[in-house]
Amino acid sequence: MAAREIEHLIELLAKLPGLGPRSARRAALHLIRKRSRLMAPLAAAMTRAAEAITTCTTCGNVDTSDPCAVCADPERDDSLLCVVEEVADLWALERTGSFRGRYHVLGGTLSALDGVGPEDLRINGLVARAGAPAVQEIILATNATVAGQTTAHYITERLQHCRVQVSRLAHGVPVGGELDYLDDGTLTAALRARRPT
């Protein structure tokens, strides 16, 4: 039987995504074996992160400063505002390196079943930002799901009175995708969104 501290460590590790009790036990043993090289620096890094990380009041991103690095960057294009559901989506777009505008994180999507209404998302903040004279285009980068697109349509309606162009991401054939293996829905969307070459 392991000591109470080790059991507690295993319990906490088992709460992480991708880890169950068995894999948490393996991770705990690995950390114990590499106590000075991995466990102590990891604990210190986690303590520092827990103290420093905050949510940006402008866009909803997580960072160690408020406003976040994206909002504070003077090199970014103020005329483009990209709306995403979650911080993970913001990171995905940043990984591409192809977008140099600003972001707005909604914090989820409208959901009747889960009782998520417009007031639970950062939609009022988005409408306020859209009213700024510098903003010219709002890109709705919500997921291609019923909930994501319902949220996008709702935002489009809310932005009707703002003098901004509203666009959304294209839906269709992914790079490297073979038509034979694509689902009917994606193929339908790709056909609808075809463009002249």
């Binding site: 009747a112 019923v146 697109q149 319902t150 349509h153 489009t156 689902d183 009917d184 339908t188």
Partner: peptide, 25 residues
């Protein structure tokens, strides 16, 4: 196993998408 996917064809139309969400919920 999918027989027919309706959502993809309705995503561009806010009214139909609202109808789909309403009937399912």
């Amino acid at each position: 196993e999918v027989e027919r996917s309706y959502a993809a064809g309705l995503m561009d139309d806010p009214l139909r998408l609202a109808g789909l969400s309403a009937v399912c919920s």
